[in-house]
């Protein structure tokens, strides 16, 4: 094998090894769940296995030298490694209120100029507080009206959110962060304006409804709002 072939092998080998190491670290630390659904770990194992096989095959390769030059190969290797550079920069990151504002079909928080939050329902005060995720609150609909619940999510605040409210939201992930769907509820809270966007909050309160642009949407009348650390699984899974 000539020098050009050796360079090509070395560059390809570096790319395979880097991705193999990345998959191994992501799996070992569980950090892949910031980007992918936890149940998808087998595809990462499969990818790592194939990359290891490619590396082993590379050692046996006796190809004629490729026609493209070293610069082209370096640029392509750089592109293949580009996601790893972004992975290093994005480690520990999850989608937050910026992504919520872009993905929420109704915008971050529609101007809620209609009927104010109402929590009237025949639910006794001594009923135990239910721990529900935000998607369960949406799915539960009006039958949950008046129930005292405790739920967690991130804080969204912008000019479209009415005074005295913030939006508590989470993302529902199907496969990866590219396909997440936002779910959010309005929370009435005396100190809403002091909430930090993107902070995680645990809200205890009663479920009610409020009118937004002519439609009833679920909302929470907060009794207690606590700032909490990010949960182990920041996303919800259907």
């Amino acid at each position: 094998m000539d020098g050009r072939g050796l360079v090509a092998k070395s560059i390809d080998g570096a790319v395979f090894a880097a991705w193999l190491a990345a998959y191994a670290v992501l799996l070992a630390t569980g950090a892949y769940t910031d980007f992918l659904r936890p149940a998808l770990w087998p595809i990462l194992v499969g990818a790592g296995t194939m990359l290891a096989a490619f590396l082993a095959t590379l050692a046996l390769r006796q190809r004629p030298a490729p026609r493209d030059g070293w610069l082209a190969r370096l640029v392509r290797a750089g592109l293949l490694l580009l996601p790893l550079a972004y992975l290093l920069a994005a480690r520990g990151e999850i989608l937050g209120s910026y992504a919520y504002g872009k993905r929420a079909l109704a915008g971050g928080g529609l101007s809620a100029t209609g009927r104010p939050l109402a929590t009237t329902a025949a639910v006794p005060d001594d009923e135990p507080t239910a721990a529900l995720d935000l998607d369960q609150i949406w799915e539960g609909g009006q039958r949950l009206c008046g129930r005292r619940v405790v739920t967690e999510g991130m804080v969204f605040l912008d000019a479209s959110v009415p005074e005295g409210f913030f939006v508590l939201f989470r993302f529902v992930m199907i496969c990866c962060a590219a396909d997440v769907q936002p779910i959010g509820v309005y929370v009435r809270h005396a100190d809403a304006a002091k909430m930090e966007p993107d902070a995680w909050a645990c809200v205890t309160g009663r479920i009610g409804t409020m009118e937004v642009a002519g439609e009833e949407v679920p909302a929470l009348d907060a009794e207690k709002v606590e700032t909490i650390p990010r949960p182990g699984n920041p996303y919800l899974y259907p």
């Binding site: 910031d34 980007f35 972004y86 992975l87 990866c176």
Partner: peptide, 10 residues
């Protein structure tokens, strides 16, 4: 960055 890495990882 999160979306880019997610698409490629998947």
């Amino acid at each position: 960055s999160v979306v880019f890495v997610s698409i490629v990882l998947e």
